[in-house]
Design a protein around this nucleic acid. Structure first.
Length: 471
RNA sequence: GGUCCCAUCGUCUAGUGGUUAGGACGCCGGCCUCUCACGCCGGUAACGGGGGUUCGAAUCCCCCUGGGAUCACCA
């Protein structure tokens, strides 16, 4: 039995800014596939564009990947540190006649483009230096001697076969005048030397693929499996960008999204597993496959991501929420270690929170020393009519022993009997007194969590507030 | 413009010749109820158009239309 070759995928971002969610999605696909196949996932930083690459951007890539829970088995590799390797292959290509030096200046290239366009032709390199067999000189670039006849067919595992006429390709540049390889050359050599055999990348690379295949062929290396995933679009069906809203992975982290929700959403945008919408991380690793990646572009829908995030918040064990929630609480001056029992607090907020940020905001009243009443709420409920039930309830609570659900219910029942009011009439003013708002978790829940002393002091404060209205 | 890709509810999608075209988000009702959520029940809404092939097409073929990608010494 022939052993299956181990799958090796990769993610090669260029560090020129933040990590775009669209890019993150292809990282996720590659990572999931490697994990699913028990293969390897390599990270490579494509920093050959020296003008635009920054260390800051590199850090953001690590930060984003780590937050998403995407780990790599090899790398990070940096292309700028691999120049010797590219040179080695370049020599081979020149020796074997697959590449040649070209001394045409950018101005000359531009001129030939214009000329070609004017005569209705294609804007491509005209092959001036193709057969001159020039030696290396200062500022000379190296071009690939592309075949001018025949076809190159990309066997795409997602899109199927794509046929390209070789005469559509021109002698593209492999190495720039400054000795830095261009993208198409560097990727191929990297993928070959890193043993990458499965290349899943964005749709926008389809046109590069035949060029790259030609290089593989020229250096006699076996081709990897190619799969091009469709783009992520914005609401107006153009490439998803800032105009459409938040696009960086870290932005979603900062808005209080859970990494698992992000992962789930990103995968589900362009891949499916029957009718299933919700996936845990492990589940994804188990069932992910390339076969079910769709062929058409998808619109990024923040609403659905939000809904999915709410689902993941609910599905996450409460204790696992402490850590990710904490930074959001701190922004409101709340330390999760102090005050009411965090476990209970979060439990009451889970079904009501779409994001962690949202949850933190709703948690404020549990910890606050002073409750400020929302104007509308106070106006509607903290009025003289609420005075009696609040006083009666306060008395009831003061003599109450333990604040259990049962005890509290009894206290409210007694209050209802004494005042002849229904629960709703009593609970709403109390809710405003305790939270400042008209909406909150269940009244018994919050009373027991906030605790006797604080509850009574808040009730008394509210009573004073109402009395103050008269005088 | 050349080349290439794509096309099921508003959005993400299931569907691989015979289904009342399913699910999810959103939206709209209802139930639950101490408020708000959650949950549950129900509803709204799609095969871009035209030709074929076939007893029968969302599914296969062609054309049109529409969208997208790409045409660098960027990646």
């Amino acid at each position: 039995m022939k052993p299956m070759k181990q799958v090796i995928t990769r993610f090669p971002p260029s560090p020129t800014g933040f990590l775009h969610v669209g890019n993150a999605r292809t990282a996720v696909f590659n990572w999931l596939y490697a994990r699913h196949m028990q293969g390897k996932f390599v990270l490579r930083i494509e920093d050959t564009d020296r003008q635009r690459s920054t260390q800051k951007a590199i850090d953001v890539i690590f930060e984003s990947l780590e937050w998403l829970g995407i780990d790599w088995d090899e790398g990070p590799f940096y292309q700028t540190q691999r120049l010797d390797i590219y040179n080695e292959y370049l020599e081979k290509l020149i020796q074997s006649g697959h590449a040649y030096y070209c001394t045409c200046t950018p101005e000359e290239i531009e001129a030939m483009r214009k000329k070609a366009m004017a005569s209705g032709g294609k804007p491509r390199y005209d092959g001036t230096c193709r057969d001159k067999d020039l030696a290396k000189t200062e500022n000379a670039v190296v071009r690939f001697k592309a075949p001018q006849v025949g076809t190159t067919v990309v066997e795409d595992v997602i899109k199927g076969n794509i046929v390209f006429q070789n005469d559509e390709l021109d002698d593209f540049v492999l190495v720039r005048g400054d000795g830095i390889p261009t993208y198409n050359f560097a990727v191929v050599i990297d993928d070959i030397t890193m043993n990458v055999n499965t290349v899943i990348r964005g749709d926008d690379h389809v046109m590069n693929t035949p060029k790259q295949m030609l290089i593989y062929k020229a250096v006699s290396s076996p081709l990897p499996v190619f799969g091009h995933v469709p783009m992520v679009l914005g609401k107006d069906r153009t490439r998803f960008s800032k105009r459409h809203g938040a696009v960086s992975v870290t932005a979603y982290r900062d808005m209080g999204y859970l990494p698992d929700a992000m992962l789930n959403y990103l995968v589900r945008l362009g891949w499916s597993h029957g009718d299933q919408e919700f996936f845990s991380r492990d589940e994804l690793i188990n069932v992910f496959d390339i076969e079910h990646i769709g062929r058409s572009a998808g619109v990024f829908d923040p609403e659905k991501l939000l809904a999915l995030n709410a689902d993941h918040i609910q599905a996450t064990p409460t204790v696992e929420l402490f850590k990710p929630l904490s930074p959001f609480l701190i922004k409101h001056g709340i330390n999760i270690e102090e005050g009411p029992d965090a476990q209970s607090v979060i439990e009451t907020l889970k079904p009501r929170s779409k994001t962690l940020k949202d949850m933190a905001e709703q948690a404020i009243f549990y910890y606050a020393d002073d409750i400020t009443y929302e104007e509308q709420a106070a106006q509607k409920f903290l009025k003289p009519a609420a005075l009696e039930p609040m006083r009666v309830l306060t008395d009831q609570l003061e003599v109450l022993g333990e604040f259990t659900e049962k005890n509290l219910e009894d206290a409210f029942k007694a209050t209802m009997e004494q005042t002849g009011l229904k629960l709703g009439k009593i609970a709403q003013p109390v809710r405003v007194a305790l939270t400042g708002k008209t909406a909150s978790p269940g009244i018994f829940e919050i009373i027991s969590i906030i605790g006797k002393d604080r509850v009574i002091s808040r009730l008394k404060k509210a009573i004073c507030f109402i009395e103050g209205l008269d005088g």
